[in-house]
Amino acid sequence: MTQPLHIVVCGSIVPDPLQTLEPVSTPAGPGLKNEMMLPAVLDPWAACGLFEAANLAKQVAGSKVYLVSLGPKAKLQQVMMTVAQKFPFELVAVDGPAGGFTEAAQVAEALAGAINAIPGLDKANMLVFGGWASASRAAGATMQMLGEKLGITDQFQGVDECKVQPDGSLRILERIEGGRHQVSICQGPPIVCGWATGNLPEPPNNPQVGMMNMRAIMPALQKAKPAQVAQDGVEWVTVQLPQQRRDTRIVKDVPIEEMAQEIVEWIKK
């Protein structure tokens, strides 16, 4: 029989993906221009892991979802006003920068500390979820380091599916080259999953869930401890955005194949 799962999702905030980002130098190191004014969303990669966690928790009775977020408290509060209506979870907030200019090992250290401090966490039945990469910290190394710090050796990256089988084992699909998946069967928790996009749509907002979650989220934000993740030992040599070129053309009723062909021609130019 499957034991209740304790699913810990690590995910923080990133600037809303359509925002115009401009790196600037600040007295505290590199940052983004107007960072505190930029609208933020839950990191889309981690959000996929969170949706999958909620789905798994629904399937395995007695399971619980924790969201461990390292980010500036004020912005976390704002993003939680959107995320908290989706499904029940418990927030563990860690106060610190989330702009991307942090070092993966320091972030992993802070997250491991926060996870280890969760009271009543059943580490034997723990699934640690997060983004395979991140929209701001795209090194793709944080989850692996976090797993190592937590002593979890079964790690999966680029995950699109994680199912609990009747015998309690876990069937996991990881992305590999050529648009295919590698299928792994794991005896059971604890594991680390760095999620790709998963297969689930964003759940609808449920006001009752929101009200229930928010009663615990506000105290969690007030209790958030500061994390030292962008202080010493890291030197940024250069910071730059990818080059971009924008050509806008409005078309109607153009077949997808024709659009794709035009984009190919545009890239070739």
Partner: peptide, 23 residues
């Protein structure tokens, strides 16, 4: 926009009211 965010953050921080965007 910035003023609303400033007011909204204080309100949510007070714990007395809940504001749900996207609804």
């Amino acid at each position: 926009g910035q003023f609303n965010q400033w007011v909204g953050a204080q309100l949510m921080g007070s714990g007395m009211v809940q504001i749900w965007p996207g609804t």
